[in-house]
Design a protein around this nucleic acid. Structure first.
Lengths: 334, 334
DNA sequence: TCACCGAGGGTTAACGATTACCCATAGGTA
DNA sequence: TACCTATGGGTAATCGTTAACCCTCGGTGA
């Protein structure tokens, strides 16, 4: 059914190895004429390289395996795959992702991926977190993306949450805001780190006494329809209180969306009365809010790209931790 | 380096074929004792099946190849992959997706996928559209997902846009709304079909004269920050005019988001003054709007699942067109 | 004249898993 | 006793590609 090198060899009246050399071996000794003739026949017959067969000799398939922790449900985390894919393609590799949707255990999925003999394996998380990788996979997985392994045995790529929080807070301060509240998402690693960065920037700027407050945003799950209740009460309290903030930094864009709604309820204007800034740059939300939201974009694409580069470089890294910078997207909410 | 059947056979003192039978061949004649002993050794040595090697005999890798048209940029279209994955897994298959990001031509990407010798190939689009597949790939691609091939040579799975529009319109009518405006997204196949369904439902209900109007929503690209300008002017005009609508059906959730903002500007209450309904159920948006948006959820998951089932059934379908029903998600905007 | 060289291409042995076919033994049966 | 069959397992070919090694045939310098 499918065309093999053999078929081409027969048709061309040469040996298989000559065909192989003509099609793939860049430097094989061979007259240009023969090479062209063989290529023409391959084209005519509709030959498609069989990578599985090639992999028998090579020992691996030209694949970067990705074990993804719910990745698929995240709208913007697909950027990770995009970054991986771009860098992989440069080495003529493809990305092969497998998702562990909740119930299944990590080890089993890693083994499933290994059956395809990828050149290297990465573990990617949907949101920044710490992951406990089973002992025996510490050296199977080459890079952790958007997460770190509990005992830091594996090289990890994570967003620089603290730095981003410091940057955006400084930005608010430079914009003249002096009384900044931070509405955080409790229970998330990213939230904790962002809060730490926020505090650092406030302290460094030297006006802690006056303004900074940190409030938890929601208790319910992110996808709950009713999550905004807490935000509304906080905002109402803040804006009606004696010490009105002139800026609100949000734990992420979703919180910002709720903050927008709450501010509207209490009649506050963005950015005139209150500036709003946030993290993530979840495009559908951030660019569509009214006014469009200034936010720190997660370095997902960059993490993907760097991951592929590290994996393909092949130098067994000693479990470093790379913190990648966010990028500020200035819109009109500040 | 990696463990092969040979290594296990040596260790167990049996032949390779016996090991193969013990590990994979369910019904091979063999004492249970031997089977268990071999399995134990395989486990101990950390054996992982080499699917590439197996594929040499089988002729294909246990993969469903997916050629995805920008799929990766779409937050909710990942549901297609999820559906595919679920159904594929039931047959011990994996999904292997490759994205054509704009510049590259379809044929080249299909060939790239074919190099991995997938059992079958699907073509998936990010949003409902018509695709012109190069002539020679009409029989390589087994199923079109969320799109149809221009000349309908390939079995296609698409959302039943017309039916969905009729359903949601009828729902608005049943809710007592009599003056319904449809704010559409021009230039999209889905928009055209939804509009047709809307008109059908209005006509069937018998009160066309009074209320239904169709207005284009935006001219700019979907991701433009300034896209909402047109919506705002339309809504202002509608709501201030003599013939105020009591319901607005939106071309999709993004339009709805802008409609919300516009209605707020003109001081209209949702759903008391105006009910709002929409299409897509883009969760981040629909469930977070205030009030949460009633919308028709796209059957992405179902399309993925059905695609895998069709591909794996193997019966060369004669280019049918399957229209899959949306699911209504009732929230509180109606 | 002859050993040598390089271009061009052939032979063959892997790679790992599967499978069609064959063999040996034990126990039952005519 | 001779034959048959079920059980447990071995042998070797095969899939498509690559790579190590070999062969042949002009031409060339000594």
């Amino acid at each position: 059914m499918t065309v093999s090198l053999n078929d081409i060899a027969e048709r061309a009246g040469v040996s298989v190895k000559t065909v192989s050399g003509a099609l793939h071996g860049g430097s094989a000794r061979m007259s240009e004429q023969t090479r062209l003739r063989i290529k023409a026949i391959a084209e005519e017959l509709g030959y498609v390289t069989n990578l599985a067969a090639r992999s028998m000799r090579q020992g691996w398939m030209p694949l970067i395996g990705v074990v993804a922790d719910e990745l698929i449900t995240s709208p913007f985390a697909t950027e990770i795959i995009r970054g991986l894919d771009g860098a992989a393609r440069a080495s003529d590799m493809a990305v092969f992702a497998m998702t562990l949707n909740g119930s299944r255990d990590v080890g089993a999925v890693i083994e499933e991926v290994r059956r395809f003999r990828p050149r290297a394996i990465a573990y990617a998380a949907m949101y920044h977190k710490t992951v406990a990788l089973p002992e025996e996979f510490a050296e199977t997985v080459g890079v952790m993306i958007n997460c770190r392994e509990a005992s830091d045995r594996v090289t990890a790529l994570v967003p620089d949450e603290i730095g981003a929080a410091r940057d955006i807070t400084s930005y608010l301060i430079k914009a003249g805001r002096r009384n900044i509240a931070f509405i955080n998402l409790p229970g998330l690693l990213a939230g904790e780190l962002r809060e730490a960065g926020f505090r650092q920037a406030i302290t460094e700027a030297g006006f802690d006494g006056g303004g900074a407050r940190v409030l938890p945003a929601v208790r319910r799950a992110i996808y709950s329809d009713r999550a905004h209740s807490l935000v509304l009460s906080h905002i109402t309290e803040l804006m009606r209180g004696p010490d009105r903030p002139d800026a609100i930094l949000c734990g992420n864009d979703r919180v910002a969306m709720e903050v927008y709604a709450a501010l509207r309820r209490v009649g506050a204007q963005i950015p005139d009365d209150v500036a709003v800034a946030s993290f993530d740059n979840q495009v559908d939300i951030a660019s569509r809010l009214d006014p469009p939201l200034t936010t720190m974009a997660l370095p997902h694409r960059a993490m993907g790209r760097l991951a592929a580069e590290i994996l393909l470089a092949g130098d067994t890294a000693p479990g470093e931790l790379h913190k990648l910078p966010f990028q500020m997207v200035e819109r009109s909410s500040v």
